[in-house]
Structures are given as C-alpha cells and as structure tokens.
Design a protein around this nucleic acid. Structure first.
Length: 483
RNA sequence: GGCGCAUUCGUCUAGUGGCCAAGGACAUCGCCCUCUCAAGGCGAAGAUCGCGGGUUCGAAUCCCGCAUGCGCCGCCA
C-alpha cells in the first residue's frame, strides 16, 4: 500500500488499504506500507499521521513500513532518491531516456492548443532527437532539462488481478517525463524502482492508476525487471456518480471516528463495497474477511457510496456489543455533548447506555439519547404533557396520584411499578398509554424513550418524583414555562 | 478529442447459456408485537438485466455496434 500524505484518509484509500491487507494476510504475504511523498509541495508530515491513525483505527496493520521498519527501507519515497537516480542512469546509458529542454510554460501552451483543437494532448517530441553533444552543450550553458522516457510504438498488455486482460497502444502516448529538471524523480518512475527494489509482488490500487500501470510495465522492461502483478479497484463514486470528494458528506476515516462510527462497522461496510463472498452473508469481522477474501470476487464496476448501509452496520455492531464496552466507547461522545459523567456515576451511566443500546445508530447519538438522564431538570412540551384529548387539569390530577403511588412504592421494581400504574389507569378509566405518555414526557421531556418503567428504575425515585412534581406544577401554571 | 474500463431494483450486490417471468441486503411502505421510540417478526412495492443488432433450440450470461458513466491523457500522486 502506498498512500500519498496529501490529505485525509478517505474511504477509497481505506478500502484499497484494507483489500491490500486482506490479500497479504490471506496469502501469507508481507504487507508493505510505503509513503509516496515525491510531490514535495503537497506532501505534509501531519497527513502521514492522519493516515497511520486511520489505518490503526481500522485494524489495518503493516509488516514493513514507517514506524516499524523492515529489510527494504527506507519506507518514504523521498528518502529513496539515490536509488531512483541510480536506476535513471541505467536508462540514460541505454538511451531510453533523453534530456528535454522544453519549459513547463511551453508544454502547457502546447497542451492547451491541442485540447482546443481536439487533438490528444501529448508531447510533441521536440527534444527527442537532440544529439548527446548538443544536449550536453546546453546543459553546460546552464539550461535546465528534464529526463524523458522514449516510448516506442507497441501494444502493452497485462493480466489485471481484478479486470482481467487489458491492453493499450503505447503509440498514442508520447514520451513522458521520468525525472524533473530539478533532479527529482517523478512518481511513476520512482514507483517502478521502489516496487522492484522492495521486492513487491502484488500491487493493488485504484483504477485511476490503470494508465500509469501500462507506462510502468514499459519501464520495467526497459530496466530489465520483472513487473509485479497488478490489480485495479474501481473507484468509489458519490450519489451523483462522480468521483468522491470531501463535499460528499462523511468520507474520511477521521470523520467516521468523530461521528461515532465503529471501526468494525466501517471495515465491514467498505469490505462489501465492491466485494462479496459469493453467498448472502454480510456480517464480517476482520478474521472472517481474511478467510473469505479474494480479488477475483471484486466487482469491476464503480460502486456508489451510500451511508445508509453504513448506519445500519453500525447499529448492528452497537447492538451486539457488551454493554460495558459500549459504555466506555460511548463515553467520550457523551462528554463532548456536555453531559457530566462522574466516576461514581459509572454504574448509572452504564444502565442508561443499556437502555438506549438498541435505539442508537452512532455513538454520537448517545449525546441526545442520554441527555435526560443527566439533565438537572427536563422541559416537557405542554402539547405532549397533557393527556391526549384531555385537559391540563385532569392530567395534573392523574400525575398527582402517580406521584403518590411512586412516593409510597418507589421505582426500583419494574414489574411492580407497571402493575400499580396500570391499575391506576384503570381506576381513572384511562387507557394505559394515555397515562404513560404524560408520565414519560414529564420525567424525560421526550416522547421517544426506552420503556417507561425501566427508565424510571434507572433514573431513580428522587429524579422521577422531583420531575413529576414540576410537571404537575407546569400543568397547573402553564404560563410559567413561557420563556 | 484519443485511449482504457464499466453498465442487474433508489443503493450495495447474487448471477459465468437452460435451476432467473432475476435471489439477498440497506433504504421505503404496510401489518404484527407494544406504554412511546427502537429492536424483532411477517409482508409489499421496487430491475422490460442501458439501447439496438446478432450467435443459439434457448442469453442478464457469448459476439458486434451505439449510448451513457467513470478514469487517464501533468516536470501531480
């Protein structure tokens, strides 16, 4: 895997990394991470960290690479320049590479003109036939020159691990730059040298690299190297069928983490984006994926990224998680929502989490879901506090009787509470729900909550009775709420 | 403009010539359960398999053309 540290780790890179990882584990191979940082102007060390963190979060670990080393280092492309130059020399000696004195401006103009005239924008070959003597003379005169690879017309073909047999006509390319005039190798050339010298056997990357691959194959041959196997994964698209970008909502691993997605859910989701096991199973842990994964079951069409399915996966993983673990994972989200969880309130917190567990899709949902458990007081909406088709006065009377019952019997026995209050509803001649809703709204401020009596038990007698009392007061003095 | 790759329900997909008048999952809708919300159960709707030609007794599956989408065509990666 060879990411560029030029931005956040987005879902496409993550998927590529995961597929690489799975392939390596499945085949008993070595998973190598190399940082592709030859774009000096865009590469930033801080992005490296973001990317590493993202991989670690997803459980994607590498056998060789930055942070851990290995026998084929260094693992940053920018630290391998000597090697690149060494192999460049070989190309120069064999005449496959020549110096090109065309300035970037000149080339840009040429390209623009070609585009305008609807011609393929390719290098004219202006410097192609400059003699070595002439080239040296200009170099000595202080002119800058890039190295260009001399392309001979032919058909290049290879068997792609995902796409099958593919081919391209090299006669259409034009000579391409392998080394900038400042001496830095260009990515496409550096990759060839690095993959070879690092003994890479399998390269799996995004489909946007397909045309690079053809050029790389030609370079491998010119350098008398055996190319690795290549596989290209179709690009993930947004709902408008365009290449996914930052503006398409939650697309980076950082954001997934921040929004309360679980790494196991994200992993499961992206694993199934373009791959399937051949049967109808959908839930896959990392180990299962390693067992089942194969590149030839990767689809060759572009998948569209749809977050609904990820939400569903996330909910499933949340529901299946032991409460204690869920509570500790949810905690940072609850705290950042401004709720204070004291250490002696850990048990209370866990019980509250347990009640919301099957109602929550993301860890960040706990902020809202748990708010009423931690609020000093709740602010019921009069509209829902009053009994349906009833009056504030009669609701207040009813809640007063509820309060008396609970004062006497407490709230710790869920079944007992239910039995008593159902009895009360009957005495009042109300349907159970007609009584329960005002209670619910009164003690939680919400119409959607976990089952009422379990909620009361967790809240405890003190909170419940206090909130009921204020609800009654509110019913009798509706003007008191008007802010 | 050239070249490459792709095209099955809204989305992810199963499907490799007869088992497909196309199966599963998410989303949607309905019913059940039920003190609300979820979860769960059951069910519905949803794809003339991009279009047009061929090959074949038979095609979503093979071939050709077209259309559309995506990618690449940088001294970016």
């Amino acid at each position: 895997m060879a990411p560029s540290p030029t931005g956040a780790l987005h879902i496409g890179n993550a998927r590529t990394a995961l597929y690489n990882y799975l392939l390596a584990r499945k085949t008993g191979g070595t998973y190598v991470l190399r940082i592709e940082d030859t774009a000096r102007d865009r590469s930033r060390p801080e992005f490296e960290k973001t990317i590493f963190d993202g991989f670690h979060w997803l459980g994607i670990e590498w056998d060789e690479g930055p942070e851990i080393g290995g026998d084929f280092g260094p693992y940053r492309q920018s630290e391998r320049l000597d090697l690149h130059r060494q192999w460049l020399e070989k190309l120069t000696d064999s005449g496959r590479v020549y110096r090109c004195f065309c300035s970037p401006d000149e080339l840009a103009d040429e390209r623009k003109r070609a585009q305008a005239e609807k011609r393929p924008p390719r290098y004219s070959g202006k410097c192609r036939n400059l003699s070595k003597v002439e080239a040296q003379r200009r170099l000595d005169a202080g002119e800058e020159a890039a190295h260009r690879f001399r392309v001979e017309p032919r058909t290049v073909e290879y068997r792609d691990l995902v796409l099958g047999d593919v081919r391209e006509d090299a006669g259409l390319w034009g000579d391409f730059v392998v080394c900038r005039s400042n001496g830095d190798p260009v990515y496409n050339f550096a990759v060839v040298v690095d993959d070879h010298t690092m003994e890479i056997t399998d390269v799996v990357r995004g489909a946007d690299h397909i045309s690079n691959t053809f050029r790389q194959i030609v370079m491998y041959e010119a350098l008398e190297m055996a190319p690795p196997r290549f596989g290209h994964l179709p690009l993930i698209l947004n709902s408008k069928k365009q290449k996914l970008s930052k503006r398409d909502g939650t697309v980076s691993v950082e954001e997934f983490l921040a929004q309360g997605y679980l790494p196991e859910a994200v992993r499961n989701f992206i694993a199934l984006l373009g791959w399937n096991p051949g049967d109808e199973r959908e839930m896959f842990g990392l180990e299962d994926l390693v067992d089942e994964y194969s590149l030839d079951r990767v689809s060759s069409a572009n998948p569209i990224y749809d977050i609904d399915k990820l939400d569903w996966f996330n909910g499933v993983y949340i529901r299946n998680m032991p409460v204690a673990e869920l509570a500790s994972r949810a905690r940072p989200f609850v705290e950042s929502a401004g709720l204070v969880v004291t250490s002696d309130g850990a048990d209370y917190f866990e019980q509250a989490v347990a009640l919301e567990q099957e109602r929550v899709k993301k860890l960040s949902d706990f902020g809202d879901a748990l708010a009423f458990f931690f609020a000093d007081k709740v602010e019921p909406d009069m509209k829902f506090l009053v009994k349906k088709n009833g009056t504030a006065g009669e609701t207040a009377d009813a809640l007063q009787r509820v309060l008396e019952v609970l004062e006497e019997h407490g709230v710790s026995d869920v079944e007992k509470s239910e039995e008593l209050l159902r009895g009360l509803a009957e005495v009042l001649g109300w349907k159970a729900g007609e009584l329960f809703m005002p209670i619910r709204v009164g003690i939680t401020g919400s119409r959607a909550t976990p089952p009422l009596f379990q909620t009361m038990r967790v809240l405890g007698k003190e909170r419940v009775t206090k909130r009921l009392a204020s609800a009654i007061y509110l019913l009798l003095n509706p003007e008191s709420q008007t802010p």
